[in-house]
């Protein structure tokens, strides 16, 4: 049986050590549950009461909120998957695409979060334009759910060992002794946990100030802060296979585009509202 561990080092000695029996998941009642899937579901389950309370607090319609959420989730999954396939097209064996098991492994492969944000924006536009639902108050009420969900996803990445950081021997470095993705027995910077922590803090701030963040300013604030943080954290990533242009990764280019588009929309909205 495969045995793996995380050693979190703190000030020259091991802070704690946790053992997991499989590399990407565990067995429960004859079902194999992946850590990433489990963390995503925990993120959803945490977000349900938060969004419910926020909907009540703002006096909004629950059915409209469910429609917006489901539509956003659908388009986010599709766009995140499409961007994942685009960024890793070099490793796709196109001759095997008619093989169902290979096709299925591609679909189970992974997602690129920035693609999900693009999908979310498209979904919000469709809901507003074609379904006649005013999305602005729902964004104001529930924008904090987005960073909360993403933070749990990042913890899932940490558990699996993907999206790992650069070699680093300082405070809180982590070492995977057996991982399918991360280099084993190398002390790494815990970039996944840093991103999760930033997301959690951002979510708490957005939740506290949700009443004061009028119009779409909550969404703009989230997108601006996230694009800046992600751009910086990309320098601490050490995934070997990362496509990009010059010294920037694909995610950094997308962060720049996201930052510019958000800034433009923010200025446009600000002028319109004043």
């Amino acid at each position: 049986m495969v045995r793996r561990s995380y050693h979190v080092k703190r000030g020259g000695y091991r802070f704690f050590e946790v053992y997991f029996m499989e590399q990407i998941g565990f067995w429960f009642l004859s079902h194999f549950i992946t850590y990433y899937g489990l963390m995503i579901v925990i993120g959803i389950l945490v977000n349900i009461p938060i969004s419910y309370l926020q909907i009540k607090r703002f006096g909004l319609v629950a059915n409209d909120f469910i429609i917006i959420c489901a539509f956003s989730a659908l388009l986010s999954i599709i766009c995140a998957k499409i961007l994942y396939l685009i960024t890793s097209y070099k490793y796709i064996i196109f001759t095997k695409l008619n093989d169902w098991s290979y096709m299925n492994s591609l679909m189970n492969g992974g997602f690129v979060f920035l693609g999900g944000i693009v999908g979310l924006l498209i979904a919000l536009y469709i809901c507003n334009k074609y379904l006649g639902i005013s999305v602005q108050p729902y964004i104001q009420a529930c924008i904090a759910c987005l960073p909360f969900g993403h933070a749990f996803g990042r913890i899932g990445c940490f558990l699996v060992g993907c999206c790992y950081g650069i070699p680093y021997e300082g405070w809180l470095s982590i070492t995977y002794t057996d991982s399918q993705f991360a280099p084993v027995n190398v002390e790494l910077f815990p970039v996944q946990l840093v991103e999760a922590f930033i997301e959690l803090m951002l979510g708490i701030v957005l939740l506290i100030f949700s009443k004061k963040l009028r119009y779409n300013s909550g969404l703009y604030l989230y997108l601006l802060i996230y694009s800046i943080c992600r751009f910086c954290l990309e320098f601490f990533r050490y995934d070997e296979i990362r496509s990009g242009i010059a010294f920037m990764s694909t995610s950094q280019i997308l962060c720049i585009i996201l930052f510019c588009v958000t800034s433009f929309c923010l200025v446009k909205d600000f002028r319109k509202n004043t």
């Binding site: 990407i24 998941g25 079902h31 194999f32 549950i33 992946t34 850590y35 990433y36 899937g37 489990l38 995503i40 579901v41 959803i44 469910i66 994942y84 960024t87 890793s88 490793y91 796709i92 064996i93 492994s105 591609l106 189970n108 492969g109 992974g110 997602f111 690129v112 996803g153 899932g156 990445c157 699996v160 060992g161 993907c162 999206c163 399918q180 993705f181 995934d239 070997e240 296979i241 990362r242 496509s243």
Partner: peptide
């Protein structure tokens, strides 16, 4: 229908989403 769909979606997500190293996973498979 709404309740069944929510339960079905959560079950599918819980059991079957695997994070195969966001970008690098396909390389491992290759």
């Amino acid at each position: 229908g709404l309740v069944c769909s929510i339960i079905g979606t959560i079950l599918c997500l819980l059991f079957y989403i695997a994070c195969v190293a966001c970008v690098g996973g396909l390389a491992v498979m290759a």
